[in-house]
Simulated assay, not measured.
Amino acid sequence: MLLPVAGLVALAGCGLALLALSTARVGLVAEFVGIVAALVPVGSIVAALLWIDRWEPEPARLLWLALGWGASVAAITALLINNTAEAAGDALLGHGKGDTVSAIVSAPLFEEAAKGAFVLGIMLWLRNELDGVIDGVVYAGFVAAGFAFTENIYYFGRAFAEHGFGDTSTSGVVTAFILRGVLAPFCHPLFTAMIGIGVGISVRTPSRTVRVLAPVGGYLAAVTLHAMWNAAATLGTAQTFLNIYFLVMVPIFIAGVLFVSWHRRREQKIVATALPEMVRRGWVDPVDVRRLTSLTARRTWRARTARRAGKDAARNLGGYQAAVTELAFLWHSRRLGLAGTDAADRETGLVAALHATRAGLPKRADQPR
């Protein structure tokens, strides 16, 4: 009991320390402006990640923890290391060079390590909560969203403190918001998603070599993209930056979206493949099959249940749908030989949850129309 409490206290302490440091640098009003402006991009990122995670949603407590880790622990770790790297660069290479060293070398290496540590921790200690690439991307994305939120508070606040809201000739908070909140809100999630993909591949492969190399490859890909982005912003001209943005980052982002979409369809097939066996065993009513193989049909079913029987009944239905999905994923892991030694106990628990939630479904919502 003490460990979770200590962890939450540590997260809160890191967050408060960062808030105090940022406020001391830019002032209270600018800090408030930074917080308000930073909420917009982080909100859109979180909404996109929750949409990705609809087949088998991750526990809300872990998603909040991932967001908090990125916003506090990863951010303060990166701040301390990057400031040290900047000071060392100034001492060794001359004044003004340290910022370049910090941006191109230190930040990619240590920021991605600090963010990726959370995803790696989920893989090592909460393995049952990480079923593959989608889960890896979601956890990595939440950590990166939290990190970007904290970083944006400072950048937006500093822009306001230095220039005000800006106009056509002033690089103010509006310009900073357009650059970081509109054009590139996906950058940190994109970088760290590489680690999530690597970890997701690792937990789904029977090969020991791939199991080790996939997370390492994901980390190296994250560092490379991060370093390339920072180098374009620090060393290059405006044209160089735009070239990197449109010719590298945007295509990789589009490829990532297509990759995640393909995995979502794959998850749908896993559920569809398992449902006939669940019907045969009497765990799922045949009339429910069509409503369980489509996210749209699931959402419509929950909405109709909420209208007819209330929100509690809709939440119970959501639990039934989640139990079906998790059981399908467990069977799929078993076929691959990746379910773990506790697979039988997990199956027993999921079957019990499925029966309990199904028994609580309102009669009218459980009848075919």
Rank of each mutant, 00 (worst) to 15 (best):
Leu28Phe: 15
Val33Ile: 05
Val36Asn: 04
Leu39Phe: 13
Val40Ser: 05
Gly43Cys: 00
Arg54Gln: 06
Arg54Lys: 08
Pro59His: 10
Ile76Pro: 08
Thr100Glu: 01
Thr100Leu: 15
Glu112Phe: 00
Leu120Asp: 15
Ile122Thr: 07
Met123Thr: 13
Asn128Ser: 13
Glu129His: 07
Glu129Arg: 02
Ala148Gly: 14
Tyr155Asn: 13
Phe160Pro: 06
Ala161Tyr: 09
Ala161Lys: 05
Gly166Phe: 13
Arg180Cys: 11
Val182Glu: 01
Ala184Gln: 05
Phe186Ala: 12
Gly196Ile: 02
Val199Gly: 08
Ile201Asn: 01
Thr205Ala: 04
Arg211Val: 00
Leu213Tyr: 01
Thr224Ile: 07
Leu225Ala: 00
His226Gly: 15
Thr234Leu: 12
Gly236His: 13
Phe246Cys: 02
Phe246Arg: 14
Met249His: 05
Gly256Leu: 04
Val257Thr: 14
Phe259Tyr: 02
Glu267Leu: 11
Lys269Arg: 15
Ala272Trp: 12
Leu275Phe: 14
Asp285Trp: 08
Arg290Leu: 06
Arg291Leu: 06
Thr293Gln: 08
Thr296His: 12
Ala297Ile: 05
Arg302Glu: 06
Ala306Gln: 00
Ala306Ile: 07
Arg307Cys: 00
Arg308Glu: 14
Asn316Cys: 12
Asn316Gln: 15
Tyr320Lys: 01
Ala322Gln: 12
Ala322Ser: 15
Ala323Thr: 07
Arg335Gly: 01
Leu338Met: 15
Ala344Asn: 09
Arg346Phe: 00
Glu347Ser: 02
Leu354Trp: 03
Pro362Gln: 00
Ala365Gly: 09
Ala365Arg: 12
Arg369Thr: 13
Arg369Trp: 03
Arg369Tyr: 09
Arg369His: 06
